[in-house]
Nucleic acid binder design. Sequence first.
DNA 1: CATATGTGTAACCATAGAGTTACATATTGG
DNA 2: CCAATATGTAACTCTATGGTTACACATATG
Lengths: 129, 129
Amino acid sequence: MVTHMPETGLAEPPEGVFRAIADPTRRAILDGLSGGERTAGEIASDFGVSRPAISKHLKLLEAVGLVRVEKVGRERRFRADPAPLTDVERWAARQRLALARRLVDLKAHLESEPFKTDPTARGSEGAPP
Amino acid sequence: MVTHMPETGLAEPPEGVFRAIADPTRRAILDGLSGGERTAGEIASDFGVSRPAISKHLKLLEAVGLVRVEKVGRERRFRADPAPLTDVERWAARQRLALARRLVDLKAHLESEPFKTDPTARGSEGAPP
DNA sequence: CATATGTGTAACCATAGAGTTACATATTGG
DNA sequence: CCAATATGTAACTCTATGGTTACACATATG
């Protein structure tokens, strides 16, 4: 039994990004940044939540690298940076590949051991020559 | 100002999956299921948390379709189903594409308006002494 | 310089969520 | 039928987190 942390053995991607995109408002912020740079105020005006709330979301997004900031005068221009999402995509892709591999193994297994108990039996799929 | 919900205009993927994979233990469970089916007890024994905790994680994972269960006798065999992750991958990919598009637009913009103030100037990246 | 503007921070609140222990519900095996 | 095994559920606790309001700061502007 692993007593410390999950410790999957598989490379565990940065926790932060997963948590960051778990919140719908933060995903919406990133979506809103798809068109290009926006100031904190502009972003906040898109949602029904207070500006401070958005400010904190932006801070968190910046912390995990999903957003870059550029201070221009008294305003701050935010722009999305999807780079950290590669971790998420890689993890998701690996999950899919794992399934595919299992299916291949299963197929191979079924084809190699038709019916030990009955030599006269035809293939398990019922499509014998 | 949108008063209801984020409402990004862009297709908003199922909230559930994002929340489900936000938890490191749940991701670890899915990773552990990469090799094939496992019973609830086997899964629980991999972590330093109580079995009920794992049970709840499994319930949530099943609710969002990331895991399938098959009751066999008194035990339950769980297996991963990465299908719902396509939503996540699509969203992530779209984010990346949005950035690429912005960069292309920027490049085009820079190339179309080299140096209005100096007709003799060559490409924008030149190193004028 | 005195204000208006654009933002971040601090202090609080309320709720969600992850963990725990105790107990209820199937099945299997004698 | 009864004890052991494999799980899920209920009832709680604690902490993380998203939101809010009030206030501090920096930069533009008349």
